[in-house]
Design a protein around this nucleic acid. Structure first.
Lengths: 299, 299
DNA sequence: ATTTTGTTTTTTATCTACAATAAACATTTT
DNA sequence: AAAATGTTTATTGTAGATAAAAAACAAAAT
């Protein structure tokens, strides 16, 4: 088959769960915009809802007849985009213990294992290569460079350069900029998490990502933004498989964030730099400690 | 057809021109290593050379019978890799005057125009996207973001962060490191070019690229290296089509490089930073001045 | 016992085809 | 006349096929 209709199925699920009996639905273009899909897909959703007897549809009249049940939804395996499936599967492999740096990556084998065509795997690998974890020898195979100490150090260096830059830019934002309000809200979220740290310390990584993203947005630099995307994905999987997310470590990070936020709010560039450096230093330590202990590779 | 044998043809040309009558050729693995291809391709080259009567080949005995002529070589259109063809063609399009920022990029149309399949174009666009000049809306078209003032400023900012870092690292290299010898050689090259600046100012961009690459290698950071690759390609095409490469501007840049080199050799970190900043500042001006004057986009 | 050559197998690079999705165009309704 | 629906067309995403190139294996030569 050429292409799975995962866009349709995912959007269908998303729309179905939000339906309330006896309400009337808006126009097709409006539904499409709401879901972030084309009108063609929106119409396919309406068609299916109608066929399943969930709505009564006649031209402009779209009435919800009944609440859809779990039974009406598509199973989650069918709604994941191929890209996400490949990403998950691939990250699982390269973060597994037997994935030694230097290992060859075979497109065809990967594709077979995931149950997909080679084209998609190739395109994924090309996109993924910007993270610096794999490398291609032209006309030949990909090589796994691996989540090594070198990788972590290089990543941390760039991260520090970028974040110092972004933090300084943030400090220069005019006071009426939306980011200051966002920052204040985030400060409160940090306090709230701290108050209930024993229960909520696992939620920190999400907050952490949002916090740094807010800082980086101030730089309005596409290269910095792209790099942070890469970091976020790598960290997402890395910490998911290496659950060293100690309560204590996260608590300390929250305190550092709060210091950092206070420095930003002071507008004092020297204070910002100090707080930023302090946090980045301990983030670097955290990253290094989370590495698999063997992957020090001597090549 | 599935795949053009451009690797073979390009390597054949490369090997043929280096042949000298009556010499004996080395073993197949050695030839392959020399050319950077597999033994299969090396054998294909030997086979063809033999068929054309250029060598006499019998097992280990490979004697050059005659010097190949231009007539024996494959024409250059047949030796370019598809990737290079697409890259050239695409850069030509996006640097052309009628390529307005915000423009849609159509894979199929591009492929037809270049005379290639869509897969190759897709893969090229994915790879190219890391340069920040194009952006994809999922399930929909690519958008040209364009060589705008914003792009140039964002690029310059990152470049400055990276180069300051690399230059500092360079200053810390142990004195017996090969890079110091390379730097000294490069200093001489700069002097030589300066002595004959009226004739040679056009060669500066190549020297410039090599100089900055040498600096960046000191950082041993894959992200910095990758970013510099991107810069180099973008600049390569940009300056090729926007021939604002004024003699005067290049002369000034050479002087800045020489100051920069002297600072590095002094090992004084403060001096390095000063010289590096000075050069990067004027490089930024050069970049901004070379922009198409209209592309200031208000979106 | 290595290294080289001869042969076969595997893998990559690229094309073509086609369903899903988006986008464009035409008609109807308010 | 503007917005919504109905219909058609264009474009993307993905699989499958195949020649080129690389890699692995086997036999021969130093």
């Amino acid at each position: 088959m050429a292409r799975q209709n995962t866009v349709f199925k995912e959007a269908y699920n998303r729309y179905a769960v939000a339906l309330r009996t006896d309400t009337a639905l808006p126009s097709e273009p409006e539904i499409a915009a709401q879901l972030g899909v084309s009108r063609s897909t929106a119409r396919a959703i309406l068609t299916r809802l109608s066929e399943e007897g969930i709505i009564r549809w006649n031209k402009r009249q779209k009435i919800v007849l009944r609440q859809p049940t779990d039974h009406d939804l598509f199973p989650s395996e069918e709604t994941d985009s191929l890209h996400d499936i490949i990403e998950r599967s691939f990250m699982q492999r390269i973060l597994a213990d037997d994935a030694a740096p230097g290992m060859q990556i075979n497109e065809l084998e990967l594709a077979r294992e995931i149950g997909t065509g080679t084209t998609s795997v190739r395109e994924f690998l090309i996109r993924f290569s910007r993270f610096g974890l794999i490398e291609k020898r032209p006309n030949s195979h990909w090589t796994l460079k691996g989540f090594t100490r070198e990788f972590a150090l290089e990543l941390a260096d760039v991260r520090e350069m970028f974040e110092l830059h972004s933090a300084a830019e943030f400090g220069r934002l005019p006071r009426d900029n939306q980011s200051w309000a966002d920052l204040a809200a985030m400060r409160d979220e940090h306090h709230a998490m701290l108050a209930d740290i024993n229960q909520r310390f696992k939620d920190f990584s999400v907050l952490d990502e949002r916090f740094h993203l807010l800082i980086h947005r101030a730089s309005k630099n596409r290269f910095i933004a792209d790099f942070y995307d890469a970091i976020a994905i790598v960290f997402h999987y890395h910490y998911q498989w290496n659950k060293t997310a100690a309560r204590q470590r996260n608590e300390r990070a929250i305190h550092e964030h709060l210091d950092y936020i206070a420095a930003l709010e002071s507008g004092d560039q020297a204070a910002i730099e100090t707080a930023c450096r302090a946090h980045l230093h301990s983030a670097r330590q955290t990253l290094l400690q989370s590495l698999p202990q063997v992957a020090t590779e001597s090549a």
